[in-house]
C-alpha cells in the first residue's frame, strides 16, 4: 500500500543550523510511528514541514498522495494536528472552539461533529464552559478532540504529553491508543521513551535531523541493546572502576542518572558485572541513550 507519509532527502536549514538533514521517512497507513529524538533533533521542524508551515530547502514530501508544498492545503484537509503547546481560545466556550475548527476543516454537519468530539473528550457536560475554566487534563483532551473534528485518516502529534503530569499523560495515552486501534495513521514525535514504547508500532530514532535507526521497539532493542541490562548504583569511584572493567570486556556502558547501565550484560564474562548490579530486560531507553548519546527522560 502507498505510504501515508513519504519523505525523501528532505532538508531544512535555518541560517547556519541544519534542522532537518536529508531525512528519509515512510509512514505506512494504519500504524503509529514514534519519532523519538532528543531536544533539537528536528522533530517539530519535520511536523511543520508536513503541515506546510515550513518549506523544505530540498527533497520531496508526499502526504496522503499530495505533493508538498504545492498541494499542502489539500493534504491538511485530511490530517489532524495536535500541537505541542495548547493554543485553544481560552475565553471562548468548549463548544465554540470545536465549532470554529469544524468550519475551518469544512465539516458538513457541524452539530454532530461537535457532539462526537465532545464525547471523545468526555466534555459533554462542560460544553458551555469557557476553556479557562477547564482543568489541564480536560484542555489536553479538548485539544486532541479539536484535531480530530473532521475524522482525519492521519494524525500528527507533536510531543502530545510534554510537561503533563503522569495522570493526564496516561489518560491521553488511552485516547491515542484508541485511535490507533480504529486504524488512524499516527505520526507522533516524543522524547519520552515510555510514550514511544507504549504507543508506537514502530519507532524511528532521530538525531541531528536524520533517522539513525528504525524498527519495532523489540527489534530495535534486540539489535542495539541485546537482551539484558545491568544497572549499578554506588559511589563514583566504584562506578568508574566497574565501568572500566565492563568496557574492557567489550560491553557497552551508558550513564543512567546516578547509576550506570551495562548493556548486553547477558554476554558478560565472569566478574565483568558486579554481583550487586540489578539485572533487567533491555529497554528502548538503552537503545536511545546508546544511539543518541543523550540521557533519556
Amino acid at each position: 500500500m502507498e505510504a501515508a507519509i513519504q519523505l525523501r532527502g528532505v532538508e531544512k536549514r535555518f541560517g547556519e543550523i541544519v534542522a532537518v538533514d536529508g531525512l528519509d521517512l515512510d509512514v505506512p497507513p494504519g500504524i503509529c510511528l514514534g519519532l523519538l529524538g532528543p531536544n533539537g533533533a528536528g522533530k517539530s521542524t519535520t511536523m511543520r514541514l508536513l503541515t506546510g508551515q515550513a518549506i523544505a530547502d530540498a527533497g520531496e514530501l508526499t502526504v496522503l498522495g499530495h505533493q508538498l508544498p504545492g498541494d499542502s492545503k489539500a493534504a491538511r484537509a485530511k490530517m489532524g494536528v495536535v500541537p505541542q503547546l495548547d493554543n485553544l481560545d481560552v475565553d471562548v466556550t468548549v463548544e465554540d472552539n470545536l465549532r470554529v475548527f469544524a468550519r475551518l476543516y469544512r465539516v458538513k454537519d457541524i452539530g454532530p461533529a461537535v457532539d462526537r468530539a465532545l464525547d471523545l473528550a468526555r466534555l459533554q457536560d462542560r460544553r458551555k464552559d469557557a476553556v479557562d475554566e477547564l482543568s489541564g487534563g480536560m484542555r489536553r483532551r479538548l485539544l486532541l478532540a479539536r484535531g480530530l473534528i473532521h475524522q482525519p485518516p492521519l494524525l500528527l502529534l507533536d510531543e502530545p504529553t510534554v510537561g503533563l503530569d503522569p495522570q493526564i499523560r496516561t489518560e491521553l495515552w488511552t485516547l491515542i491508543d484508541g485511535l490507533r486501534s480504529e486504524g488512524v495513521t499516527i505520526l507522533m514525535s516524543t522524547h519520552y521513551i515510555e510514550e514511544a514504547q507504549r504507543l508506537a508500532d514502530e519507532v524511528a530514532v532521530m538525531t541531528k535531523g536524520k533517522i539513525i535507526a528504525r524498527g519495532r521497539p523489540n527489534e530495535l532493542i534486540a539489535e542495539h541493546a541485546g537482551r539484558e541490562t545491568a544497572e549499578l548504583y554506588g559511589p563514583p569511584e566504584f562506578l568508574r572502576d566497574a565501568r572500566l572493567r565492563a568496557e574492557g570486556e567489550g560491553l557497552k556502558v551508558r550513564p543512567a542518572g546516578p547509576a550506570i547501565a551495562i548493556v548486553g550484560s547477558e554476554n558478560a564474562g565472569n566478574g565483568a558485572v558486579p554481583d550487586e548490579a540489578i539485572r533487567r530486560a533491555a529497554s528502548l531507553e538503552d537503545v536511545f541513550v546508546l544511539l543518541t548519546g543523550e540521557e533519556a527522560e
Partner: peptide, 12 residues
Amino acid sequence: QRTYDAILAAPV
C-alpha cells in the same frame, strides 16, 4: 496565544 499555528495547520 499561538492561534495562527492552529489555524494554519487546518486547510487555510
